[in-house]
Amino acid sequence: MSVLEAYIFATLLLGFFGIIFKKNLMMKIIAMDVMSTGVIAYYVLIAARGGFFTPIATGATPGPYADPVPQAVILTAIVIGFSIQALMLVGVMKLARNNPTLETDQIEINNTP
């Protein structure tokens, strides 16, 4: 379990540093997606602490259940993350018309008073 946790934190941090160090605006957005993948995986991992089985009421009890609450919560967060991602990509498409290289530094200099 702790190995998985370490991988998840590595994903989170890689995404975070990607947002800082990637120069291309598109890559920054993808890095943000990597970071949110890390967060989602962390929720799933914590939910599975108590057991792995899907909590569905059937006759037979197969074993210890996974905690449904974090999973339900992260489903909302996935949807929100995905819509923000889509919105940002539309913004980038529009920006790409006048800034075809999408270099963040250049866009920032051009558009800051």
Binding site: L12, Y42, I46, M88, K94, L95, I107, N111
Partner: peptide
Amino acid sequence: DRALWVGLRYLFVSNTAMLFYLVGAL
């Protein structure tokens, strides 16, 4: 273009902060 950039910058900052927040909430 400027409005788009200001908006994107806002979304970047706020979304990254909210990802940290989600870990805290968990």
